[in-house]
């Protein structure tokens, strides 16, 4: 299979998954029992012709699959719905992306640097004390819920020690973002460290590394260049999966640290029971997740040519 074919096939798969995901959201949210038009009138039933007019205006008189197509058409034009006060959700989102992107990228960076570092350290010392400490630490980090980490970190580093701002973005990047990003990164960092550790152990016992040693390369050359680069490929795949977790994490973290991003909008909308905003924002985040996965998949093929010819 050529690279172009592989990319086309991957794109076709993404479209299928995308349509499926949107269909599930659509079914869950818009076709649940209850009649919104009848509810508009309250106790007094609306006149027959008003009901008919409203039904045809919102396409409620047409079959479900057609309604779904209208919904997709709206999405394609950037229509994420309107909230209860008539504001389009997409407008409210627009100003908030930079904060969330800065937060997610900072978290990604922390995960990558510390996770790969710890994994490399543990993998090279398999079975020794350092390795065991890292392993135990990663299990612990994976078991503490992110909001517990965030609230505790806020209390210790923000309130008591005063090292970081407690909340808000007034101090700008990076000061205001480091602590929230570190809190989201804890979980992914643990997974990356474990993944990297396993991968390093596999690579160290592979034939090409034995050849490198036999060639007389120094430890720095073998580990620093060849082992690290070859072990990092699974980590890259994980980064894409992890984005889903990061985006979910931003909802909680931005809520707790009061960062005015997309996640905070979702956090506030949930607490205010604003259904349309919740669905619109989640849909936008899910679309970002799907696209990021595609990009990483394509990058992955470029980095490891073996995958192309599977």
């Amino acid at each position: 299979m050529t690279a172009a074919q592989a990319v086309t096939r991957r794109l076709a798969e993404l479209v299928l998954v995308f349509l499926g995901v949107m269909f599930i959201i659509y079914v869950m949210v818009f076709t649940l029992p209850g009649d919104p038009i009848m509810a508009l009138g309250g106790d007094r039933p609306l006149p027959e012709n008003v009901v008919a007019e409203l039904r045809s205006r919102y396409h409620l008189d047409e079959p479900v699959w057609k309604q779904y197509l209208y919904y997709l058409q709206g999405l394609a034009q950037g229509d994420l719905g309107t909230n209860f006060s008539g504001q389009p959700v997409a407008d409210r989102l627009a100003a908030r992306w930079p904060v969330t992107i800065a937060l997610a990228l900072t978290a990604w960076g922390i995960e990558l640097v510390i996770g790969v570092g710890l994994g490399l350290y543990a993998g090279l010392r398999r079975g020794r004390v350092g390795d065991r400490v890292v392993l135990a630490g990663t299990i612990l980090a994976a078991s503490v819920p992110v909001f517990v980490v965030a609230v505790s970190a806020q209390l210790v580093f923000g309130v008591q020690l005063g090292w970081f701002p407690v909340a808000g973005t007034t101090q700008g990047w990076p000061t205001a973002y480091l602590l929230p990003a570190a809190c989201i990164a804890v979980f992914g960092l643990a997974s990356i460290a474990r993944l990297m550790r396993g991968s390093v152990i596999d690579t160290m016992s592979s034939d090409f590394v034995r050849t490198l040693w036999a060639k007389g390369l120094t430890r720095r050359q073998v580990v620093g260049v060849h082992v690290t680069r070859n072990s990092a490929i699974p980590v890259l795949t994980y980064l894409a999966i992890d984005l889903g977790y990061l985006l979910g994490g931003t909802v909680i973290i931005e809520g707790i640290f009061n960062l005015p991003g997309v996640g905070q909008l979702l956090f506030q909308a949930i607490r205010a029971h604003e259904g349309p905003t919740v669905v619109g924002v989640s849909t936008a985040l899910i679309i970002v997740f799907l696209v990021a996965n595609l990009v990483v998949d394509l990058l992955h093929t470029a980095l490891d040519p073996r995958i192309r010819h599977e």
């Binding site: 869950m28 889903g244 977790y245 985006l247 909802v251 919740v278 985040l285 899910i286």
Partner: peptide, 8 residues
Amino acid sequence: PFLLGAVV
């Protein structure tokens, strides 16, 4: 994403 799906 697990959490976002559950939220929706």
